[in-house]
Design a protein around this nucleic acid. Structure first.
Lengths: 228, 228
DNA sequence: ATTTTCTGGTGATTTAAATCACCAGATTCC
DNA sequence: GGAATCTGGTGATTTAAATCACCAGAAAAT
């Protein structure tokens, strides 16, 4: 059971300021419905038809592409305030990736037609979302391309920084994923990920026990990420 | 000198239908200016400030990220009708990649404030562009992620199909890029690209002479792309 | 006009990382 | 409650592709 203690849970859906009218907000609210997902549940599956705009209220959701040789590539770990599957909903008629909950999560589903009519009537809200999509797009493309040519230490350093800076905002955190999934995020294999993490441990750059990780030398992690 | 013979040169900027009013069209037209670029000219450089919306009228422009070890990664070859740098303009205040003309090109520059005010007043146009951005985003991410884990034959097959299907719509075409640039698009090195292309030639999958390429067995190229 | 740089190309060598083959403990399934 | 699967982990082997080292012809620059 998820208890919503954060009063600003909808601040990315209904941004502060004069962007949306109270009428529009209640229109969107009343056409929507919160659905809870347990850890490991599938929110939507690659290839299925899009039908709703989905806004992550609480939890953590991984977005990944199914590769051919049953190898996946994790595009992003979505945090609360993220519109999951948005680019697929507006850019295609089927989902281009799969979304599964990696923690118990709640998602606000909004009917696509209602959402669309608000967007078409309210240019400011459209521009707000356009900017959000562009920003997110830049982040995803930047993460993937900067990782692309890097060697293992650079890739793994990238992942450590990703969780530390983008997800948990702390030098100490617990990986919400298995080693295999972390490898899918880093674009490598389970074995290689483990080995490199062990090297980092031996070199006292990090302290790590199971899913727990503490960055001991942020300096070195950043350098490894930079030099690749 | 570029001669604009195509009457629909602006069909992506001013989409058919009732999306834009004649007033808005003339407002955008009058606030804009066509600038011509010669082959190899830089249109904008990664890290510089964004200021205009840019719409490619004619020509071909490559969008690429400068990697650290002076290695680049080509994100996309922009064709006429493409808003170059759009995600940077709306998602950041600096360009996140560099754009250079790979053929003589003409670009229509529109003042960002004028563009923004049209967008904010016209939700339909905003939604139109939102969809365009989402679609483009899916294509770029799909291209890069599907390429990511592939081995050389799969990567090179991908590139051949990219030019054949997305750029030239023909089984015979001329690469508009050098081998080095093609490697930057495929995510490999010049040597590896050349070697793999030679193998394709030896296996009679393609006929190739310099920049010219003809797909002899589309079947096999597609299979190589699929199995990676 | 002649250096200098870029381009396409090939061969030999090196190297990083994937793959294969395990193992023990924890989960999940029937 | 036992079988099957998943997980984190390590070592040995293989392999794909990057790197290095060239070369000749074209293109650019001085």
């Amino acid at each position: 059971m998820i208890i919503k203690t954060n009063p600003d849970i909808y601040d990315k859906l209904f941004p502060k300021g004069d962007i949306l009218t109270n009428e529009e907000i209640s229109q969107l609210k009343s056409s929507g419905k919160t659905i809870n997902f347990n850890k490991k549940d599938v929110v939507f599956r690659q290839g299925t038809l899009t039908s709703h705009v989905m806004y992550l209220e609480t939890g953590l959701i991984k977005l990944f592409k199914n590769g051919r040789n049953n190898r996946s590539f994790i595009l992003k770990i979505a945090t609360p305030g993220y519109f999951i599957g948005f680019v697929s909903i507006f850019g295609d008629d089927t989902f281009q990736y799969t979304a599964t909950a990696i923690e118990d999560s709640s998602v606000f589903f909004i009917d696509i037609n209602t959402f669309n009519s608000v967007l078409e009537k309210n240019g400011k809200y459209s521009v707000y979302l356009l900017k959000k999509v562009c920003k997110d797009n830049l982040n995803i493309v930047d993460r993937i391309t900067s990782q692309y040519h890097k060697q293992l230490p650079g890739k793994i350093a990238d992942i450590i920084l990703y969780f530390s800076e983008k997800i948990y905002h702390s030098n100490t955190f617990e990986f919400p994923l298995t080693r295999n999934e972390l490898a899918e995020l880093a674009g490598t294999t389970k074995e290689s990920f483990i080995r490199t993490l062990t090297e980092f441990k031996n070199d006292k750059i990090i302290v790590s026990d199971g899913k727990l990780l503490e960055i001991k030398s942020l300096e070195i992690v950043k350098t490894l990420s930079r030099i690749g």
